[in-house]
Amino acid sequence: MSSPAVASLSTRQVRHAFQALDGLGIPGVNSERLCQEVGLSRSVLEDLEARIPYVTLDTLLERAVELSGDDNLGLHMASLPVVDPDDVGSAVIATSPTLAESLERGVRYQRVWGDGERLRFEETLRGVRMRFTPVGTWRLAHRHLAELAMAQFVHGARLLTEAPVTPLCVRFVHPEPADTREHRERYGCPIVFEAPANDIEFSREDAARPLVHADALVHLIFERQVQKLLSTLPEEPSISARVRAYLQRSLGGGDFSFAAVARALHMPSRTLQRHLAEEGKSYASILEALRRERAADFLQRRVSIAEVSFLLGYSDPSVFHRAFKRWWGMSPESFRQKHGG
């Protein structure tokens, strides 16, 4: 199980990834080897109630790309859809009245599959748009996750409506790959790279298409099961906890500015500021509390004062000295002597 402060996803999602990779039959790429390489035990993978950090899946996909040499791995994984008969979230989607409502349900119950707001449903002038934002700072795995997600949206729309649904447009934040022939064949629509967000847009007519498995009573039953499942999940990391976790990773070399934190959490600065205020916190107070705690810890572990200043993100040691004296009522040197560091 992951720490409450670490964003995680359902074990089912990782199992699905393994099943898709195994189904591709790539020499040297199999679930046993990848489990060992990312430090994932079989016992955790077999626990369908467990949650696994997103970074584990990211590392797994990047290693699979490296081992396979497949630059379009995300697209190829989407060609082997995995059906999970016990996934009540997918059942809610499949029994929704229309394509648009199925997309909206996917956003509403996305925490069944993973923490955070990875999915966003929006109405547009031409129809509806589904936006996908991987969790964490951008890395290579996110390109493959985005291409996989968009291909699954297209496949799912056609499967659930039994109609030749073609998106109006697909957009990706990553640069255009050297060869996009497979992308254009898979999505069947204009593709924009280096866009502001990963998203797929459907026309108003396609969004209104009824689903072939729509059933109001069955849908209600599955929806109640999903709501019950959500009530049993561990509490999702608070915004302030996610800010603190980012700062812990970024102090001493990374960009830990408020703007960088907002980008990492995929929300506008004003929205982040509002969420923190609702929790009675602020970026400045979280940063100062973290620095205060880590300063004391570093000094007690015999880290040099100059290095402590750097590790806490201070460009000027004199600023660190003044801050430390404000926190502890004494200089770093006096603190070290008093606490036997």
Results as ranks from 00 to 15, higher is better:
G89S: 08
G156Q: 13
F193P: 00
M1T: 13
V226Q: 03
I221L: 07
N198P: 07
P268G: 07
T98L: 02
H339W: 11
E147T: 15
V261I: 14
G313L: 10
G23T: 04
L287T: 03
N72M: 06
R111N: 07
D70M: 12
E37N: 06
D22V: 07
S309N: 11
V83D: 13
I191M: 12
R274C: 02
E288H: 08
V107C: 14
L80T: 13
R270F: 11
D115W: 00
A149V: 07
E32C: 02
A262E: 00
Q110I: 04
D70S: 12
S8W: 04
E288V: 03
E101A: 06
E307M: 11
G136V: 10
L211K: 09
M77Q: 03
E62Q: 15
E123N: 13
L312N: 06
S238G: 13
F172E: 08
R209F: 00
E37D: 14
E185P: 00
H174S: 14
G252V: 05
L145E: 03
N198F: 03
G74M: 01
P81W: 05
S304H: 07
C189K: 09
P175W: 02
L159S: 12
V165K: 10
L60K: 04
R181L: 10
L48T: 01
L45S: 06
L9A: 04
L125K: 12
G188W: 02
M267K: 10
W113G: 08
E288F: 02
V6D: 04
S3R: 14
P190G: 12
R186A: 13
H213Y: 10
E46S: 15
D316R: 14
S285V: 05
R291V: 00
A289M: 05
Y283D: 00
R120E: 12
S331T: 15
L148T: 04
L9K: 07
S43N: 10
Q13A: 07
N198D: 14
A208S: 15
S250N: 09
R129V: 06
E307Y: 01
G340H: 11
L75N: 00
I26Y: 02
S331K: 00
I191C: 11
Y109K: 12
A284K: 10
H76D: 11
I239M: 13
G253E: 08
T124Y: 08
L229C: 02
R291A: 01
R263D: 13
K281C: 13
V170D: 05
E122M: 09
E122H: 12
D115Q: 07
Q152S: 14
D70C: 13
A91F: 01
A50D: 15
T137F: 02
V107R: 13
D206G: 01
E32P: 00
I26D: 01
S90I: 03
V303G: 07
V173S: 06
L265Q: 05
L99Y: 06
T271M: 06
W328D: 05
R105N: 12
A149H: 09
L220K: 09
E194Y: 01
S282C: 06
K228P: 00
A7R: 15
T137W: 02
A178H: 08
S269A: 14
E176M: 10
I93C: 05
V135Q: 03
D87I: 02
L230W: 01
D199H: 10
P164I: 01
V173T: 15
S304A: 14
D87M: 05
D70I: 12
Q13C: 10
A178L: 09
I286V: 15
G252T: 05
L145G: 01
